Amino acid sequence: MKPAHVLKAENLYAGYEKKNVLQDVTITIPSNKISVIIGGNGCGKSTLLKTMARLIKPTSGQVLLDGKPLHQFPTKQLARVLGYLPQSPVVPEGITVADLVGRGRFPHHSFLKGWTAKDDEAISEAMEIMNISDLADCYLDELSGGQRQRVWIAMALAQQTDILFLDEPTTYLDITYQVEILDMLTDLNRKRGTTIVLVLHDINLSARYADYIFAFQKGKLVAEGTPSEVISSQLIKDVFGLDCTVIQDPVSLSPSIVPIGRHHNQLVKSW
């Protein structure tokens, strides 16, 4: 089981070019759980991940890891605890799957410590978890979108961090690959206790796979809790501007939204 690190933000303001996207956000990430951040486009989901991964410097407020400000950690030390996979990673030219996954071992190397058997084990294990061992010698640009995404996640897993941030890891993938990747991440969390934080667009998949949900609107945290505590027709209306009804997912028993389109709404009223 991974250590139960405490990662939190306090009164966080952050953004780009002197314009704050996040507005006074205070948030604590549940340790050893899967958390999902939801909200409309431009609400600050990705900005929050980048700020809590120390890729964006806060305008004010702070991010703390185990009570210590994030900026006080040496880069490699932080990278051994916290991993981050962006929305659209840049694919290096002419790189094989095994080589890319191996780049996840960078934080564990130093001038005095070169490549070890432990690195080989971590790479093999990460590829096995993501079911890409048979693709080790393939070039990344030869793979399908779903396969490529599994390789990127395997690279993050090879880093062997206790906390893993994934920004929209299922975007542009068909539903089969989405469920497959989320199942694999759930297995990782359940078996190792890795704290996983995801940004997802699909509300129903978010509710099915999350232990905890954070809902954002216009840079502010407007709701947090278990899926059953957060997902309601009113919240979906407030955050996404969507009329819906909420039912129980017959498989996971989590809340599931059913959108009510304008024409369907007229039919409902006519009944």
Score class of each variant (00 low, 15 high):
M1A: 11
P3L: 11
P3Y: 07
H5G: 03
A14L: 01
G15L: 03
Y16F: 00
K18H: 12
N20E: 14
V25I: 06
P30D: 04
N32H: 10
I34E: 02
G39Y: 02
G40P: 00
S60W: 10
L64T: 13
D66W: 10
T75P: 01
A79D: 01
Y84A: 03
S88W: 01
S88F: 13
V91Y: 02
V97E: 04
V101P: 00
V101S: 04
R103W: 10
G104P: 02
L112W: 09
L112D: 04
K113L: 00
A117K: 15
K118D: 13
D120G: 11
A122E: 03
M130T: 07
L135E: 02
Y139S: 09
L140I: 15
E142V: 03
R148L: 11
V151Q: 06
W152Q: 06
A154S: 13
A154Q: 07
A156M: 00
L157Y: 07
Q160Y: 10
F165L: 02
T171D: 00
V179E: 08
V179G: 05
D183C: 09
L185K: 14
L188G: 10
N189Y: 11
I196H: 06
L198C: 04
Y212P: 12
A215N: 05
K218N: 15
I231C: 07
S232P: 09
D243Y: 06
C244M: 04
T245D: 07
P250A: 06
P250M: 10
I257R: 08
I260N: 09
H263A: 13
H264A: 14
N265A: 15
